[in-house]
Amino acid sequence: MSKSIGLAQIIRQDDASSTGVWGVYTLQSAFQPIFSFADGKLTATAYEGLIRPSRQGEPVPPGVFFANVDGADRLQIETLTRTLHLLNAAAFLPTDAAIFINFDPSVFTDASIAELALRDMRHVLNEAGIDPRRVVCEVTEKKPASEEALFGFVSALKANGFRIAVDDFGSDESDIKRIRNLKPDIVKFDAHWISRLMESGAGFALLKEMVANFEDKGIRTVFEGLEQSWQLQLAERSGASMVQGYVLALPEIVPANFSIYSGQENASGRDIAAAAPHPEPAHVPQARAQRPGRSFGKRTYS
């Protein structure tokens, strides 16, 4: 039988996974691999935690679930989802993989909330046996309720060994000003934005320049939301450190065997050419109208 652990809303299942309960919803963790380039190979070196809600056994789109969460409850949901991801990461992810978890800056209204969030993180990491240096805290694109509280929280996270990522760079709130203020270790480029830049030679040149500027400052870059092989190849040519998207791997709900992505079962890693079996021409691709296919939308979940 399942038994309750830690927070009242978290249940440990017989298969070693942890699930959450929020009203009529059951919450599960899914993880999507993030791959690093090395010598023409792709190996999963990190995983992003994503919530998968369901109601009476039927999946509910994450965006629909979060839209139904009352604003006053958002902080509790943030804590619950982070806790689920960390507990499930400890149970299922390779022990050397980084763990990306999202932080909504709109919930940080004052310093006390930041202090509470940090305390909860320490408690969960201690229970899960995870080194804080494995955890990458993604600051999502939302507008902060208090910039002072957010900056203080990020500083405290860094002081405690966590790494910081700015998510959706190029969207409304994740701009260069946020990069200067937060001084992240990693920048994740907005999927729609990079797709548009990749459509022209001038745009791709600008993309390469931005990647180079970040890398020169010691900031690693992630291209997320990649769905097609030509995007993957251009991501490698741009100099991006890491890539993420459906062209490589879908998010998988725990329990799942994630070691197949990490090289533990495939020591040579994944060949970029194999991941993109129908390569585009060597030049920058032409307009989207000549390349049918859906684009990967922005995430609306944590």
Rank of each mutant, 00 (worst) to 15 (best):
M1H: 11
M1K: 10
S2Q: 09
S2I: 06
S2H: 06
S2N: 09
S4Y: 00
I5R: 12
I5C: 10
I5N: 05
G6E: 05
G6P: 06
A8L: 09
A8K: 13
Q9V: 03
I10M: 10
I10L: 15
I11D: 04
I11G: 00
R12I: 07
R12A: 14
R12H: 12
R12G: 00
Q13K: 15
Q13V: 01
D14Y: 02
D14Q: 15
D14K: 13
D15W: 10
D15N: 15
A16Q: 14
S18C: 15
G20D: 10
G20T: 12
V24H: 11
V24E: 15
V24P: 14
V24D: 15
V24W: 00
Y25G: 02
Y25D: 11
T26R: 15
L27S: 04
Q28A: 13
Q28C: 10
Q28W: 02
S29A: 08
S29K: 08
F31I: 05
Q32E: 13
Q32P: 12
I34D: 02
F35A: 03
F35T: 00
S36T: 01
F37K: 06
F37N: 04
F37D: 06
A38I: 06
A38S: 14
A38M: 07
D39L: 07
D39E: 15
D39R: 14
D39Q: 09
D39F: 04
G40D: 13
G40Y: 09
G40C: 11
K41F: 03
K41T: 08
L42P: 02
L42Y: 00
L42F: 07
T43E: 10
T43S: 07
T43C: 03
A44N: 01
T45I: 13
A46K: 05
Y47L: 02
Y47S: 01
E48A: 12
G49H: 09
G49D: 08
L50W: 12
L50C: 10
L50K: 05
I51L: 15
I51M: 13
R52F: 12
P53H: 10
R55L: 13
Q56T: 01
G57A: 02
G57N: 03
G57I: 05
E58V: 13
E58F: 03
V60F: 09
P61T: 10
P61R: 08
P62N: 07
V64M: 09
V64D: 14
F65N: 06
F65L: 11
F66R: 07
A67L: 05
N68A: 14
N68D: 14
N68E: 15
N68P: 00
V69R: 03
A72Y: 01
A72T: 11
D73H: 14
Q76C: 04
Q76N: 15
I77W: 02
I77L: 12
I77A: 01
E78R: 00
E78Y: 00
T79G: 00
L80G: 04
T81N: 01
R82W: 06
R82L: 07
T83D: 08
L84F: 01
L84G: 04
L84R: 03
H85P: 03
H85N: 05
L86K: 03
L87N: 10
N88L: 05
N88F: 06
N88D: 14
A89W: 09
L93F: 05
P94L: 04
P94D: 10
P94A: 09
T95R: 13
A97H: 06
A97Y: 03
A98Q: 13
F100A: 05
F100Y: 13
D104R: 12
P105Y: 04
S106E: 08
